[in-house]
């Protein structure tokens, strides 16, 4: 479904070039759930933006469904790190924005919007403006806005980072359900090892400065999985420990670090 082929990204920073991503090769099968984990600033968002067609790779290429990605595609939905809501639109109207822009009939998607609001616990807030919501609620709105597109591919950039632990687990479970039900291919960026393990078929571990693919870890735990009691605590613990040491041993500290 997605092939990332020798992709590198070097930004022209104000104090010389910044190498954010170096030579990443990765291929993601249709319906696969890949999580990307790595330290802050290692290039996770940059990688995602290149897959989304928002940023042209300096070298290499990205293909979605066999087609070279040159610009964003309507069957690929992006959930940004920041909620990016329009401050003058109600929750409901923010969710329906893609429908409007795609020129779809709103009436056909109202029911879906209702379902998404219900699922994310936002039904009572549908008429509110974004500034009247908490950060976590705003993130849920932006998740709904991506889901209303019924995308084949979802690119999610730390979508749950502003949520409390419980809501986070709830939505993680919900996301698995959506993933299994719709067979969506998902690339999900996170800082949380636990989240990465719970959600993923495979975890891609990135090293920092420049971001390189350090390891691909398979998570052979049957679904549905949950944070609470599950039959595979041992495996989860083993994989988590492995990821943890991979991330800790990533000694490439920022060159400009002054600590």
């Amino acid at each position: 479904m997605i092939t990332i082929d020798g992709v590198s990204q070097t930004f022209k920073g104000r104090s010389g070039p910044v190498e954010a991503i170096r030579d990443i090769n990765l291929s993601i099968a249709e319906g696969e759930f890949l999580t990307v984990i790595g330290r802050s600033g290692c290039g996770k968002s940059t990688l995602l933006r290149m897959v989304a067609g928002l940023l042209k790779p300096t070298r290499g290429e990205v293909r979605v469904a066999g087609e070279l990605v040159r610009e964003p595609r309507r069957d690929v939905a992006m959930v940004f790190q920041k909620p990016a809501l329009l401050p003058w639109r109600s929750v409901e109207d923010n969710i329906l924005l893609p429908v409007e822009i795609f020129g779809w009939k709103k009436a056909d998607h109202r029911a879906n919007a209702d379902r998404l609001l219900e699922m994310t616990g936002l039904t009572a807030f549908r008429k509110r403006l974004p500034h009247e919501l908490s950060g976590g609620m705003q993130q849920r709105v932006s998740l709904c806005r991506a889901l209303i597109q019924r995308p084949k591919v979802m690119l999610m950039d730390e979508p749950f980072s502003a949520l409390d632990a419980l809501t986070r687990e709830e939505l993680a479970v919900e996301l698995q359900r959506i993933h299994m039900e719709l067979g969506t291919t998902i690339i999900f960026v996170t800082h949380s090892i636990q989240e990465a393990v719970l959600l993923a078929d495979r975890v891609a571990v990135l090293s920092s400065r420049p971001g390189q693919l350090r390891r691909l870890v398979e998570i052979p735990i049957p679904r549905p999985r949950s944070f609470g009691h599950n039959a595979h605590l041992d495996e989860v613990a083993k994989v988590s420990a492995e990821l943890h040491s991979l991330l800790l041993n990533d000694t490439h500290l920022p060159k400009t670090s002054t600590i």
Binding site: P72, R73, R74, M78, F80, K82, A84, L97, I101, F102
Partner: peptide
């Protein structure tokens, strides 16, 4: 972020 949103939706 709003510009990028519009771009990602191919507006």
């Amino acid at each position: 972020d709003l510009r990028e949103l519009a771009r990602s939706l191919k507006a």
